[in-house]
Design a protein around this nucleic acid. Structure first.
Length: 268
DNA sequence: TATCAGGGCGATC
DNA sequence: GATCGCCCTGAT
């Protein structure tokens, strides 16, 4: 839950309360046993990618000293299958931001435009559907959105709500990776990084390799002896080297670079 | 008070 | 196609 790919959770005691589309459910783990309520078994299995043969996937990725270490330390880490629309909103909020702020923005967005959902005593708000934003949108949406602290991201969300919907996102699944990415990048506020996040975390493109500042530093340090590398080279290296399951490599290396290595590793 | 962050965009060369 | 300033906001 907390490795940075997903933001719409809230911890209450040892439970994680999770929003995904209009679903609101909770899970907790007790050693190798997963308890849950608010969603059925099939959904949980799908959401957490418990149906994927993790071992086989990791075996497809080049085993160098860094990937091996990360796989060993965090074995069990999987890519969550997020709700595509929620995922798109989430990564628009992530632009030039950080996790606490992303979560604040999404929370504000949900409270202002989303719908109330309940699970037992616990109340939550799902993220607004494109229609929800669009309907308020006509005149006041941007100012209203800005009240949630979204800043310049407000315009992106407003525009995207007008030009994209769930059908559009769903239709991308049947396209080749490069085409799907191109279509996503036509949306305002969606560049390479955001597009790759949406493709990887919600549309099943496990070959997508989102390059953000952290992973860029990690790759530069691990594979380029710390030398300067152009964004373009980093991207093409990642795709060529890590292969068809690059997304899994990305997630392990990303988490590795942010935890085991720590920030100090990258400071001069 | 200035700078920067888990980017994108438009202008410029 | 590479680089740069700007975009809101919160943190340092």
């Amino acid at each position: 839950m907390e490795c940075g790919q997903f933001f719409r959770y809230k911890r209450v005691g040892d439970w994680y309360y999770i929003h995904s589309g209009n679903k609101f459910f909770r899970v907790r783990q007790d050693s190798d046993r997963l308890e849950f309520s608010g969603a059925d078994k099939d959904f949980i299995r799908h959401f957490f990618s418990l149906d994927t043969a993790l071992k086989d996937i990791l075996a497809e990725i080049p085993q160098d000293r860094y990937t091996k270490k990360a796989f060993h330390l965090y074995y069990g880490l999987r890519l969550i299958r997020q709700d595509p629309w929620d995922c798109l909103l989430s990564y628009i909020c992530s632009i030039a931001s950080n996790i606490p702020k992303i979560q604040r923005c999404l929370d504000g967005l949900a409270r202002a435009f989303g719908r109330e959902v309940r699970l037992g005593e616990v109340k939550g708000y799902s993220l607004p559907e494109p229609d929800d934003v669009r309907n308020v949108a006509a005149r006041h949406a941007v100012p209203l959105l800005k009240e949630t602290g979204l800043g310049f991201r407000s315009n992106y969300i407003c525009e995207i709500s007008r030009t994209a919907d769930r059908r559009f996102l769903e239709s991308l699944k049947s396209l080749p990776y490069t085409e799907a990415k191109g279509r996503l990048m036509e949306l305002p506020g969606v560049g390479e990084k955001v597009a790759d996040c949406v493709l990887l975390f919600s549309l099943g493109f496990v070959e997508a390799f989102p390059v953000d500042r952290w992973i860029e530093r990690a790759l530069r340090t691990f594979y380029f002896k710390g030398q300067k590398v152009s964004p373009k080279l980093i991207n093409s290296f990642a795709r060529d080297y890590f292969g068809n399951y690059g997304g899994y490599a990305q997630q392990y290396l990303y988490y590795y670079s942010r935890t085991a290595l720590g920030r100090d590793f990258f400071k001069k």
